[in-house]
C-alpha cells in the first residue's frame, strides 16, 4: 500500500503546472482537453448550479462519468460526499483516476472523512489551513487543494486558505525540535507529518488552488501565492466564451510570473461569470468538514 500511495502522489506531481476543469458532458470534456486541461472533473452540475439548485447534492451518475472517460485521454476525476466511502468504492470500481472528497457535495458524515488508506485510487481533499491539510494526508489523501468558496467566482477564500497554509508552514520552519511537539498539538495533526512539513518547508503532497478562480489573473495570483496548479470549476463553462477562457487560464498557469503575457491573455475574453460576493452567500461550503 505504501508503494500505491507513492504512485498516487506521483500522479499529482505530473498534474503540476496544469489546470483541472469541471465538466458536465463529454463535449465540454473535449473542449477542456483541447484547451490544454491536464485533467477534468466529471460532475452532473457545476458548483454554481449546485449552489443555486440547493437540496442534497451527491456523487454523479457513473454512466455519465464513463462517457467522459471515453471522450478524453487525460485523467478523469470525480467527486464523492465527505465521509461517503461507498460512493468512493463505486468510483474505484469504474477506475476513476482521482477521487475528490468534496465539500461541494452535501456531506454524508458529520464527523468522519473517508479512510482513504483503504483505497487503491488516489484522493484529493480540500483544506483551509495546515492542520486540516495534514489531517487529510494522515487519512490517505495524495493531493491537497484549497477549499475556496466553490461556485461563487470570488477568489477571496482560496487566497485566504493558500496564505494561511504558507504562513503556517513558515512558522513550522522556525520551530525548534521541542516546539514541533507543541505545534502538532496546536495544529491538531499527527506529529510525524508536522515534523516532515517543517523540515521540508512544504506539504508532503502536491497542493493546488480551488474555489472561485474565474480569470487568468486569478489563476496566476494563486500560482504566485504558491499553488502548484489550479482547479477551475464554474469559471469556465459559466462564462461567455468557454474555449477562449479555458485556453487563457491554461496559459496563465504556465506564464504566471510573466505580466506581459498575462496582459495579452486577459484581453477580450468576453464576459466572466457574474459571481456572488462572499458576503452574499448563505451557505459557506468551505465550512463543511474540518
Amino acid at each position: 500500500m505504501v508503494e500505491r500511495y507513492e504512485l498516487n502522489k506521483n500522479l499529482a506531481q505530473m498534474l503540476k503546472g496544469g489546470v483541472i476543469m469541471d465538466v458536465t458532458t463529454p463535449e465540454q470534456a473535449k473542449i477542456a482537453e483541447e484547451a490544454g486541461a491536464c485533467a477534468v472533473m466529471a460532475l452532473e452540475r457545476i458548483p454554481a448550479d449546485i449552489r443555486s439548485a440547493g437540496g442534497v447534492s451527491r456523487m454523479s451518475d457513473p454512466k455519465m462519468i464513463k462517457s467522459i472517460q471515453q471522450a478524453v485521454s487525460i485523467p478523469v476525476m470525480a467527486k464523492v460526499r465527505i465521509g461517503h466511502f461507498v460512493e468512493a468504492q463505486i468510483l474505484e470500481a469504474i477506475e476513476i483516476d482521482y477521487i475528490d472528497e468534496s465539500e461541494v457535495l452535501s456531506p454524508a458524515d458529520p464527523l468522519l472523512h473517508i479512510d482513504k488508506t483503504k483505497f487503491q485510487v488516489p484522493f484529493v481533499c480540500g483544506a483551509k489551513d495546515l492542520g486540516e491539510a495534514l489531517r487529510r494526508i494522515a487519512e490517505g489523501a495524495a493531493m491537497i487543494r484549497t477549499k475556496g468558496e466553490p461556485g461563487t467566482g470570488d477568489v477571496i477564500q482560496a487566497v485566504q486558505h493558500m496564505r494561511m497554509i504558507s504562513q503556517q508552514i513558515r512558522q513550522l520552519q522556525n520551530c525548534t525540535d521541542d516546539e514541533l511537539y507543541h505545534a502538532a498539538k496546536e495544529l491538531q495533526a499527527p506529529y510525524d507529518l508536522v515534523r516532515m512539513t517543517g523540515k521540508a518547508g512544504r506539504l508532503p503532497v502536491v497542493n493546488f488552488a480551488a474555489g472561485g478562480i474565474a480569470t487568468p489573473a486569478d489563476a496566476a495570483l494563486m500560482m504566485q501565492l504558491g499553488a502548484e496548479g489550479v482547479f477551475v470549476g464554474s469559471g469556465i463553462f459559466k462564462s461567455g466564451n468557454p474555449q477562449k477562457r479555458a485556453k487563457a487560464i491554461v496559459q496563465a498557469v504556465t506564464h504566471f510570473q510573466n505580466a506581459a503575457i498575462l496582459a495579452e491573455l486577459s484581453e477580450d475574453l468576453g464576459e466572466a461569470m457574474v459571481g456572488i460576493n462572499e458576503q452574499e452567500i448563505e451557505l459557506l461550503m468551505a465550512e463543511r468538514g474540518k
Binding site: K16, A35, C38, K247, T254
Partner: peptide, 15 residues
Amino acid sequence: PGGESTTISRLLHET
C-alpha cells in the same frame, strides 16, 4: 518532462 502530452503540445504551439 512528464505531464500531459496534450497540454504540453498545446502550450508548445501557443508559445
